[in-house]
Write a protein that binds this DNA or RNA. Structure first.
Lengths: 154, 154
DNA sequence: CATTTTTATGTAGTATACTACCTTTTTCTT
DNA sequence: AAGAAAAAGGTAGTATACTACATAAAAATG
């Protein structure tokens, strides 16, 4: 007997997410790294955008402000990022990746890419492409529906 | 300037998940309910499978054991489920939905279904169907890759 | 049948992912 | 320029979603 629940979008999406997180952890941890998906995304954004504040960083990776505060705390304590007070606006903090953070990103990237392939195991190349396009469209259309929408710069 | 990160499966899946959770909360809370997606799925499974233990419940909805312990705690404290010691095996607990839980499920179901549609806003009927099929396949193929695989009964 | 092993659950601890509220600093209005 | 409004970040609290370890009960083994 099968639950009708198994064919609901919400269930399939959650399962996809659990698989994604798990594969990321497997691939990176077995290669000797200790970085979560969110920490990777934050560090990746800091590499691309120097000295951004916490709110901007959160928007760039579509996370809420408070979550990112903790994520950055951990990146800082691991020595991968620096948080400093912005002298122009003493309310906000400027965030930057450290050389150690850059080195980590370069080293971990191949394993992150490998994880991306593994999590779509069992799909043909065409199916993968189709899934990606559909997810992109859904995510773009539904951006405003999430608590922490993506906010790109410019 | 756009991060390449935005076209990674892992990012798209996480965004999908954030949107899904958020829409579920919006639709149900605005209708006066106070139930999370996981609580809904657990209660839904308890309605279908009477007197199952915690491990079985966790497998049926693809969650890890410990998470489900807490979820059931909250269902019990809200009066939607009952946890009793299994007299045949005093290690395990039998879980059952209460009449109040059944009433809640019947009442909330329309809003849950509405949420399922809303989270795929912007897709045509065909695209929705295609996305669902691709997600189903990915989830089935990747089931063993997650920490808490789905374990159906029989 | 005593001992080992396995199994179901619980506890402690960490990391997202939020809401609600508070503080500080800046900006806007009058 | 004084006071109000807005904006950035922090704190407390809740709910997933895990890992690692501990406990108690049942099953398997000699």
């Amino acid at each position: 007997m099968t639950l009708e629940y198994y064919s609901m979008p919400g269930f399939l999406i959650r399962r996809l997410h659990q698989i994604s997180i798990s594969v990321f952890e497997d691939k990176t941890r077995s290669a000797g790294f200790d970085l979560t998906p969110v920490q990777y995304s934050a560090l990746n954004a800091l590499e691309e955008y120097p000295s951004i504040d916490q709110k901007t960083l959160a928007g760039l990776i579509a996370h809420d402000r408070v979550t990112i505060g903790g994520v950055v705390d951990r990146l800082v304590s691991k020595g991968y990022a620096i948080r400093s007070v912005n002298p122009n606006d003493r309310r906000s903090k400027a965030h930057d990746i450290t050389p150690s953070g850059r080195k980590l990103l370069a080293a971990i990237r191949p394993y992150v890419l490998e994880a991306q392939k593994t999590m779509l195991t069992g799909l043909t190349k065409q199916e993968r492409k189709a899934l990606m396009e559909l997810m992109k469209k859904t995510v773009a259309e539904g951006n405003a529906l999430s608590r922490a929408p993506l906010t790109e710069l410019d």
